[in-house]
Design a protein around this nucleic acid. Structure first.
Length: 224
DNA sequence: AACTTGAGCAACCGCCGAGCC
DNA sequence: CGGCTCGGCGGTTGCTCAAGT
C-alpha cells in the first residue's frame, strides 16, 4: 500500500514515511507551524522535500482528520458536490470536515465513480437493499439497477479501520502529541523563532556552540 | 500451496496561480 | 513587466494485500 523508500539524486528520501519521520514532522509543525514548507524539512531534520512534508501533514498527520468509514451523508455530499463542481477535490473536501482532498479523490475513484457509472441509485437507496447481490462488476452493460454497490463499500471501510487500528500512533500505545500551548513555558527559553532567526539558530547548533534543540519524540527526544 | 488479478490508498509528479522582488 | 519562488491542486503511479483460480 505504500511505496518502497528510496533516495533521489539529491539525497532526499522518497516513498513511505517511517514512524520516526512522522513524529519529527508532527512535532516540528506543532511547535513552529509551517510558514515555509521548503525550509521545513531542513530544520525538522527530515531528508524529504517540502512538498512531501506538506502532503504528509495535510493528508495524514494533521489533527482532527477522519479516516475510513464514510457515512451515507458524506457519500451523498461527495456525489452532489462532484456533480456541482466536477473534479475540484479541494473544494469538495472543504465541505467534509476531517476529510482531505486526496482521500475524497481516492474514495471517488475507488468507490463512487464506478458505482454511479453503473447505478444511478443514491447511497441511501442502495443501503436500503443490503441483501441484494453485488453484481455490477460482472454486468457492466446492465446499466441502472444492476446491483447493490454500497455493501461493498462499507465492507471496505471496515477493512480500512482494521488497518488504521494497527497503524494509528495513538492506538499504538503512543501518547498523543503535546499541544503547542503545552510547550510554552519551561520547554523553550525562546519559545518561538521567526524564520529569519532560524538560520542563525541552526548555524549555532551545527557549529556546536549553541544549545541543543530538543524535539519531542515518543521514544525520547530528538537532538540536533 | 502457488500463482494471478484487481481493489484500495499513500505518495509522487507536473502544472498553475499568487506573491514578491 | 518579467522572472523567480512557493504553495496548492488534480492526475497518476507504485505498492500491498485479499480474493479468486
Amino acid at each position: 500500500m505504500v511505496r518502497t523508500p528510496s533516495y533521489d539524486k539529491n539525497g532526499l528520501k522518497k516513498g513511505a514515511w517511517s514512524r520516526e519521520e512522522d513524529d519529527k514532522l508532527r512535532a516540528y509543525v506543532q511547535i513552529y507551524g509551517h510558514s515555509n514548507w521548503r525550509q521545513l524539512p531542513k530544520f525538522a531534520g527530515l531528508a524529504r522535500c517540502g512538498k512531501s512534508c506538506r502532503l504528509r501533514w495535510l493528508n495524514y498527520l494533521r489533527p482532527n482528520l477522519k479516516h475510513g468509514n464514510y457515512t451515507t451523508e458524506e457519500e451523498e455530499t461527495i456525489i452532489k458536490l462532484h456533480q456541482e463542481f466536477g473534479n475540484r477535490w479541494s473544494l469538495i473536501a472543504e465541505k467534509l470536515p476531517g476529510r482531505t482532498d486526496n482521500e475524497v479523490k481516492n474514495y471517488w475513484h475507488s468507490h463512487l465513480k464506478k458505482s454511479l457509472k453503473s447505478n444511478e441509485m443514491t447511497p441511501s437507496e442502495l443501503k436500503s437493499k443490503p441483501n441484494e447481490s453485488f453484481e455490477y462488476e460482472k454486468s457492466e452493460n446492465l446499466g441502472a439497477n444492476s446491483g447493490d454497490i454500497f455493501p461493498h463499500i462499507l465492507e471496505s471501510s471496515l477493512a480500512r479501520d482494521n488497518y488504521l487500528a494497527t497503524t494509528n500512533a495513538e492506538e499504538d500505545g503512543v501518547p498523543p502529541l503535546v499541544s503547542h500551548k503545552e510547550f510554552s513555558g519551561d520547554f523553550w527559553s525562546e519559545p518561538f523563532l521567526v524564520e529569519d532567526s532560524l538560520d542563525t539558530f541552526k548555524d549555532e547548533i551545527w557549529s556546536g556552540k549553541g544549545m541543543a534543540l530538543l524535539l519531542p519524540n515518543f521514544d525520547g527526544a530528538y537532538l540536533f
